[in-house]
Amino acid sequence: MTEKMTEKYAIDLLAEMFRRMNLVREFELRAIAERRGGLIPGFIHSCVGQEATAVGACLALQPGDAITSTHRGHGHLIGKGGDPKYMMAELAARSPGYCLGRGGSLHISDYDLGILGANGIVAGGIPIAVGAALSFAMRKQPNIALAFFGDGATNEGAFHEAANQAGVWKLPVIFFCENNLYGEGTPQHKQAAVKDLAVRASSYGFEGVIVDGNDILAVYDATLAAAERARSGGGPTMIEAKTYRQRGHYEGDPQVYRTPEEIEAWKGKDPIPSFRRRLVETGVFTDADLEEMEGSVFKQLDEAVAFAAAAPRPEPGDALAGVYADVHDGLVF
């Protein structure tokens, strides 16, 4: 079994899966605590419980590939290589943050890493990802784009227009749906008449596949297959990863729309401890190896929070800069 696992996946990749999922989880828990503590002024939509989709999908991509993210985007950003230090500084509304304190949790981007932005509008990033795929295709650049979105986004027109366009042009793009069963506070069955959202891909001439979104290896495999298809001219794929949002839509959500029993049952399928068990049981890593990784993640987040707390705030007048590329008296008055 050990041999089988390490035959298929490089040991460094398995370590990175574990490390990055823990980094996402710990980032979320720290951000929630720091919001309560007053360091973070804005709202937070945490992705606790959805670490396997974010990290598994991003690790199947190449550095030059592009992603678009969502309001629940911290996992995607860390998955694609975003630095928790600058993310935490952005959440804390500080000048060294990713967006100089202008964006906040909903708008973090890193163009050098191919992160074309989290997004405050449900489905807003999907047509942008298709545009990045168009750009790669037109320049014969061997890169692809991946749009993350939730189950709720598949009821938005933007999803359907973008999917149709990508299908017509056979663009190198992956439509990655993290189905966490709830669109904000309303369950999926009240929002869509189909049980599996992946079937929607068939309307647009490409395949929709379903994976267990709490199994990082399944997510990775599906994304890698879709990426290979896209890179070799096979066009788009939709992946529906079934997962669960362990916390509310936003921090402070009273969650009247679901039962504590349901939440507890899903915590039993938490993607991080199950992957940890697998790594130990198959002998890929010892418990001590993994503890060391967990410790380094803790330390990294300690540093990120300390960096954010010590970072300078923007000057109020900084708000007037950076709306346009050039400066003209007639632009901002």
Binding site: A66, T68, Y111, L116, G124, I126, P127, I128, A129, V130, G131, A132, A133, L134, S135, F136, M138, R139, A145, G157, A158, E161, A162, N164, Q165, V168
Partner: peptide, 20 residues
């Protein structure tokens, strides 16, 4: 393009962000 204004503008934006 298809008659899809969301897609036209969104695609153009994604293309612009990535060098077109």
């Amino acid at each position: 393009t298809p008659i899809s204004e969301i897609s036209i503008i969104g695609n153009a934006l994604g293309a612009a962000m990535t060098g077109m």
